[in-house]
Nucleic acid binder design. Structure first.
Lengths: 333, 333
DNA sequence: GATAACGTTGGTCACGATAACAACACCAAA
DNA sequence: TTTGGTGTTGTTATCGTGACCAACGTTATC
């Protein structure tokens, strides 16, 4: 900046102002400075700017895995909206592990983000303390925690399962199984499994048809393996809810390989409204948690929080997921 | 840090050292300082550290879209390896647009990354200049550019198509179509389309069965629509190569809906070795570009470049993609 | 013509950490 | 006792920018 100032014949301060949006510099001076800087190959240094202004322009975000279309959608929508106001997402992955999350949160906070978004509502004690003490807006997403740390933009994973069970029961199914949610790592998957059990009990149905799918991320292959177990061990099962659409599709392919007709011999439902659910043959009944909405609303929340200088009260924005019917749970003839 | 120093009764410098790995502080002092800092809720500020030490710990990475399992795999492997040496990935999305890439690269360089990884080998003139002038290692991935800016970890998209066409011709197919790669945005898709044309000409076959799939990202739905067009307009086509596995699967579902048997009436091949290719019924012939290898090798390259103080020569690491045979291109009876 | 107000520009210092160097205590070997 | 080495700690100056205040020339107002 000093070199640019010298080359342009102005002070360093004026160069600084030329790179800020609403600073008071004459248009001529600004253009000249910018042109000179470009020619000299000067690139503005936000590191120093951040230190001096105590504003990093970062919004920290943690997701379990980058390789998940749902979380990717949320982060995508979040990034797009935040970019419009000059904020940049600083992304980290927890691998579905709250210990790794703790370490990640600490790393992210060192970068002095202006707000932090975490996926899920279960954290270590230290993570909660770190987030509370950070002095920045905290948003928990993809969940409705019992005792939120700060703001919440999420939905009840358990409640979505009630909606699915209701649908299956309405279609005439009673022997309904659940695949996934068996490990502690995927807390949202475990919530869905609990939701399935509660919903079945509410309908006075047997909720013991549980098939594990192993460690998250649960992909198509795990779904296929789990469906194999289900068909082997509980062949009279009429319908199955899978922890996600990917496992549901895997389960569907296993049925196809074994000549089990879907939905006539086995109805299948998933979760997440992935593209595969809408295009597979048959289409798969699923639940849309509107991941992009979660991202967009989180962005709006953060933007308004950063704009208001006063400490506002914590908000809980509940997303209402929607069941999308597919051919995979049509009424058997 | 000053407060922690006061509370512990040491100098600020000693506190600083207590937070560095290999700094010389007595174990007792370090433990005391860390414990005190934790109790006081102090979180290390990397912003200031970066400014003074002129090391940000950031590796900038641009990918076309976050919502793509292949790029996600590359970034995942890259992040994991870099995290081991204390480097953090700063990720940005170009939306398959080299203008947006230019803007993104400028934004990222302002954060003073220690190296920058870009996906693809085609950039605006200004992007090339920015990258060249940045004075940090530059790695282009997922491509083999004719005139690289710096290092390269990639493969020839065109060559993979030759391998696929060879395979299809060996299976006895001659009327082979190509879906996708019709827009300028997806430069890798366009490269594959060119590769298809060259390979067909090499076999002295008609390379005019081209079906567009629109703007990237090309997903399953676009594949299905394109297959519909292909079946309508060129019903004598025997086989089709799709720009990606997602579009290939979409094309497969369209065949299923229309009662077109795969592979007997229509053989289908994709690209990317997505999980769907391995699990769908039938399984889909595809090409594995080893995305995690790209990420891992890029990480190793960066780590070694940052370790060597001298300016080393630019390296080109060529990944050799591998054709994975599926049932979707089995020899027709 | 005097005064105030405005837009623009410059000078100074601090943001929170670290590089570089200095200095100290301690111990082993000469 | 002296010397030199080792390990640990402290002091000073600074990284590149922006907040703050001061000052300039110009114009509006009375």
């Amino acid at each position: 900046m000093k070199d640019v100032a010298k080359a342009t014949g102005v002070s360093v301060m004026t160069v600084s102002r030329a790179f800020k949006r609403d600073a008071s510099v004459s248009a001529d001076t600004r253009d000249l400075i910018r042109k000179t800087a470009e020619e000299m190959g000067y690139v503005f240094d936000t590191t120093a700017s951040n230190l001096r202004s105590q504003r990093s322009g970062f919004i920290a975000v943690t997701i379990p895995s980058i390789n998940n279309a749902n979380f990717a959608d949320t982060v995508g929508a979040l990034s797009e909206r935040l970019a419009e106001v000059g904020l940049q997402v600083l992304l980290g992955y927890t691998n579905y592990d709250i210990q790794q999350e703790e370490h990640l949160v600490e790393q992210l906070l060192r970068r002095r983000p202006e707000a932090i978004v975490v996926t899920g509502g279960r954290h270590t004690v230290r993570t909660r303390r770190l987030l509370s003490n950070a002095g920045i807006p905290v948003v928990e997403t993809w969940d409705l925690p019992e005792t939120p740390i700060g703001h919440v933009v999420g939905f009840s994973n358990a409640a979505t399962m009630l909606a699915l069970v209701d649908h299956l029961v309405n279609q005439g199914f009673t022997r309904i199984a659940f695949i996934g949610g068996d490990t502690g790592g995927d807390t949202r998957g475990a919530d869905r499994r609990r939701g399935y059990i509660a919903a079945m009990q509410q309908h006075k149905l047997d909720a013991s048809r549980l098939v594990g799918a192993g460690q998250p991320p649960i992909s198509m292959c795990e779904g296929a393996v789990a469906m194999g177990k289900l068909l082997d061990q509980m062949p009279d099962t009429e319908a199955v809810i899978c922890v996600s659409d990917l496992s549901a599709f895997g389960a569907l392919t296993e049925c196809m390989r074994r000549g089990v007709s879907v939905p006539d011999q086995m109805a299948i439902a998933g979760f997440g409204a992935y593209e595969i659910a809408a295009i597979s043959v048959p289409t798969i009944t699923t639940v849309n948690p509107f991941p992009r909405d979660i991202g967009r609303q989180t962005a709006e929340l953060i933007i308004s929080e950063l704009a208001s200088d006063s400490q506002t009260t914590e908000k809980v924005i509940e997303i209402k997921p929607q069941v999308t019917l597919g051919q995979s749970t049509a009424k058997p003839r």
